[in-house]
């Protein structure tokens, strides 16, 4: 007994430096690494290709400078910028308004549709997973060239983005006020308006501002496929080799996107 007490206690070993890994995880890592290396050989730019492209890039930049400041061109560009912002704003507002009921119908534990809530959820997923340029092509084909097709694209894109975030926010809303209102016999719409929406309002505003920011960026490029906005002017400039016009438009886009990010950041901070 005394010997046992006197014997030094075995020192506990520290855990392994690397986390243990299952054979399946190891195999997956190897497969992904192999895929990456194979893809890099096929699609990544080689240093030689980059070196050859640099002089042409420098030449293009030289032809872009100085940006065109002709008053007639600036005025036309100004109208296009305004159209771009209109597409983004109208598309986002309609998208957010439609996302509210869509999010409610898709939210687990809140939706009045029960198991059928998977249908609005699937629709929102479809809107989100198909890229906006594909939606723009579809709307240009069906509604014709111009800003209306762009606005519809932004509406669908916003539903795909906000519908999901709104549903998740509603699912995470504080349950206690909802239970209190349910207990006194309030219907689902009253619970939504009285308890859920006020609780998740900061998240809704946040997501909507992100959607607006995203819509401004998207509406800039929608014009490339004929869906209106400043992108259309950019495509024309490149097609007609009017590189000084193109540089003025790129600068304008940079300023618009930066200004929108600044504005939405300020608004988000205000609504926290």
């Amino acid at each position: 007994m005394a010997d046992a007490a006197a014997a030094p206690a075995a020192r506990p070993l520290p855990p392994s430096r690397l986390p243990s890994m299952s054979p399946l995880t190891f195999t997956l890592i190897v497969v992904v690494a192999a895929l990456f290396l194979a893809s890099m050989g096929q699609v990544a730019p080689s240093p030689e290709k980059l070196a050859n492209g640099l002089p042409r890039m420098a030449e293009l930049v030289g032809r872009m400078l100085p940006p065109n400041t002709d008053p007639g061109f600036l005025q036309r560009m100004g109208w296009r910028i305004l159209e771009t912002l209109q597409i983004a704003l109208v598309g986002t507002v309609f998208g957010v308004l439609i996302s509210l009921p869509m999010g409610w119908l898709a939210a687990r534990g809140i939706s009045p549709l029960g198991a059928l809530r998977h249908f609005p959820r699937a629709l929102v997923s479809l809107f989100r997973t198909v890229p906006d340029l594909v939606w723009a092509l579809l709307f240009v084909s069906t509604l014709g060239l111009g800003a209306v097709a762009g606005t519809m694209t932004i509406v669908v894109d916003t539903i795909g983005f906000c519908g999901r975030f709104f549903a998740e926010a509603m699912e995470e809303a504080d349950k206690k006020p909802q239970e209190a209102l349910h207990a006194i016999g309030a219907n689902r719409v009253s619970v939504l308006l009285g308890a859920i929406l006020p609780d998740v309002m900061p998240t809704l505003i946040n997501s909507s501002l992100f959607a607006l920011e995203k819509a401004v960026r998207a509406s800039v490029v929608l014009g490339l496929v004929g869906a209106g906005g400043i992108g259309q002017e950019l495509k024309v400039a490149f097609d007609l080799f009017q590189y000084r016009n193109a540089s003025a438009i790129i600068l304008a886009i940079f300023v618009i996107v930066l200004a929108m990010e600044f504005l939405t950041d300020r608004l988000r901070a205000k609504f926290q």
């Binding site: 504080d174 206690k176 209190a180 016999g185 309030a186």
Partner: peptide, 30 residues
């Protein structure tokens, strides 16, 4: 429910709403 008033251990108020709105919400269900 129309004849019963409820008070819970956790008050169950809507935090981001005013006190007045929370009280008036007691009318919901009537």
């Amino acid at each position: 429910r129309r004849q019963i008033g409820f008070v819970f251990q956790n008050h169950g108020l809507v935090g981001r709403q005013s006190v007045l709105t929370n009280v008036i919400q007691g009318k919901l269900g009537l």
